[in-house]
Amino acid sequence: MIGERYINGLVLAGFLAVPIWALAMDEPFTITLATRASVLAMAAVGLNIALGIGGLVSLGHAVFFGLGGYAMGILAHHAQTHAALDLGFLAIEGSRSMPVIWITAVTVSALAALLIGLLSLRTTGVYFIMITLAFGQMFFFFSISWSAYGGEDGLSIYVRNGFPGLDTLVPIQFFGLCFTALCAALLLHWRLRASPFGMALNAARQVPRRVETVGLNPMRLKLLAFVVSGAVTGLAGALFADLNRFVSPTMFSWQLSGELIVLIIIGGVGRLMGPVIGAALFVALEHFLGGLTDFWHVWLGAILLLIVLFARGGLIGILTGKDGPRV
């Protein structure tokens, strides 16, 4: 069996090698696929903080993904129409700058996670899953009916937003940006997991009453994990919107929340690189099998079934020979 850190190194190296190879071969579409995988991976890395370490099975993380997406969409829309967003007491100028959009996306999704967390964390187990799903559906239907920003049709942004010093329309440069963001999210997960906070959170998932008995509040630990988790997924949402130059209510859909969970389960719940492997496999299947059949999800389902039945540690678990944490 292979040590987990070598696998982690290999996965990241592979993630870098594919677009570099594509660049050399002049295959820009492959670079876009790698970018899509990085962004989905990042969204799932965010969820993995809540789900993997904290045991919070959120079926509503599309809320944060969508909020990040709409933060980008709305700011860029106002910039491209040169009309400030008028809130009555305050007029907000649009923006085409990624750093501004990112800060907005992170702030908005963290705030939403705080509110949703405060309400949902009163419940556990299947009720927690249902209440997060319900929040997801609320945002989904709200976005469908919000005609100012395209409603059901979504919102197109014609030119990708800018980042100082980069030409974001060049695929490899935008990939570099997304991959760096993914690495930052992974670094956050890694440090958080080993930190006192992560240790306490991980224990709160396993034995909440023990955590209380040593004088810590499991609720607060989980709430903070949920907020950090939502913020990371929100930032991924902003990048996803910029990748497609399009935002629509599908970013809020419960299918997306489900897919994020699937990515984590395939890769390995709670494993640092679990979501990365999961996202890479997902995008590869979507591309290759999706080219052969419209029903490629069947094969994804079969893989998921095999992993849930026979390899609870996901692909990382198979490679390292160790099961992941039980959620």
Binding site: S195, F197, A200, V214, L216
Partner: peptide
């Protein structure tokens, strides 16, 4: 960690 009362540390390993 409970005794120290400071679980809100996020970077250095416990």
């Amino acid at each position: 960690l409970g005794q120290s009362g400071r679980p809100w540390r996020f970077w250095r390993a416990a």
